[in-house]
Design a protein around this nucleic acid. Structure first.
Lengths: 72, 72
DNA sequence: TTGTAGACTTAAGTCGACT
DNA sequence: TAGTCGACTTAAGTCTACA
């Protein structure tokens, strides 16, 4: 994983976390809405994981946003 | 993998393939541009794989499109 | 509430070879 | 040129538990 990729994941992480906080959701409640694991949400928000396309979509659903808002 | 998810991957696959053909690229030449394996491009175009976020970005780079064009 | 760690299962992604 | 297969390595994603 090179510098550019790390930056991309950092950017995604920040957006997910800020959207989650806007909704006043805990990592756990977001995880439940997404159908993903809480520890996994934690990893993503710290740029430790490169989520799959389908996982990204689940997270968008949980955050009630369009994918475009997370990756634009 | 449920029906909805299969549909999502089918949609992605179709868009990738059509963009690739627009550029007159073979799967192999796209794979080289992307830095991914040819057999993997083949799998994605047949909806057999759920690519990671970073892989999606590589594919967009190879296809010279914005991500929004593939997932919109 | 979140981070982290370890152990685990499944899937991503590579590679070589053949049709 | 593209599909497929098998074997392989790495990473995604889950789960329990604790600071």
């Amino acid at each position: 994983m090179n510098e550019k990729e790390i930056k991309i994941l950092n950017n995604l992480a920040k957006k997910i976390k800020s959207k989650r906080l806007l909704l006043n959701l805990s990592q756990e409640s977001l995880a439940i809405k997404c159908g993903l694991d809480r520890t996994y949400i934690s990893l993503i928000e710290r740029s430790k994981r490169n989520p799959s396309y389908l996982s990204l979509i689940k997270i968008c659903d949980g955050l009630e946003v369009e994918i475009k808002e997370l990756i634009g």
